[in-house]
Structures are given as structure tokens and as C-alpha cells.
């Protein structure tokens, strides 16, 4: 059965940055791109556990702050390396970020 969780508000994340949210015990990195898109991924970089939400972000990429591993925010695929991250489908409704799973 599909459930919808309310993660938080878009306004809780500055434009072009990420923040970590705790969703019923699960930590997610949620990104708010300058283009206004919202992406959610696992919080830690699979390489050495770096905090992805603290990474540099552009339209569709996040770069881990610890060792510069880059990931595609849409697919979770590593860019130029073999690690990959989990991504979660999110949508925005009335300024709220919703996660469906």
C-alpha cells in the first residue's frame, strides 16, 4: 500500500542547498535546486559516509563535501565512479514536500 509522508516545507531548505530531514526515524538528504526542483536521496555518501546534504548542488548533481564524489540527483548514479545512492520520489504541494512510498 502506498503511503505519503510529509517531510517538511520547501522554505526550510535554502535555494541551491540541501538539508537533512528525519522522517519517522529515517534520515534523508533533501535538496532544493536553484531551478526550484526538490530531490531526496539517502543522507550519507556510500564512499565514506560524508553528509551529502552539505554538498555543492547544481541543477541535477550533488558533490559530497568529503571527497568530491558526484551523484546524479535524478537517478542516484555515481558520476565518474561506481558508487550509487538511493533516491526517493518526492513532490511539492502547497509548499510542503511529500514523499510517497
Amino acid at each position: 500500500m502506498q503511503q505519503t509522508f510529509r517531510i517538511g516545507l520547501v522554505s526550510q531548505i535554502p535555494s541551491g542547498e540541501g538539508r537533512v530531514f528525519d522522517v519517522n526515524g529515517m534520515r534523508l538528504a533533501v535538496f532544493h535546486t536553484r531551478a526550484g526542483e526538490i530531490f531526496a536521496t539517502q543522507a550519507e555518501c556510500p564512499h565514506r559516509g560524508g553528509p551529502l546534504a552539505d554538498g555543492l548542488v547544481d541543477a541535477a548533481t550533488v558533490v559530497c563535501p568529503l571527497h568530491d564524489r558526484a551523484y546524479d540527483l535524478r537517478t542516484g548514479a555515481g558520476l565518474g565512479h561506481e558508487c550509487a545512492i538511493a533516491t526517493y520520489p518526492v513532490e511539492v504541494s502547497d509548499g510542503a514536500i511529500l514523499l510517497r512510498k
Binding site: 502506498q2 503511503q3 505519503t4 509522508f5 510529509r6 517531510i7 517538511g8 526550510q12 538539508r19 537533512v20 530531514f21 528525519d22 522522517v23 519517522n24 534520515r27 553528509p51 511529500l98
Partner: peptide, 15 residues
Amino acid sequence: FVSVIPSEEESSVLS
């Protein structure tokens, strides 16, 4: 300066 933003109570499950 917030490392984890907490979820919003029970109401976060909408359906």
C-alpha cells in the same frame, strides 16, 4: 546550523 530537521509528529503520515 541545523544538522537534522526533525519530522513533524504523527501527522506526517497523510495516507
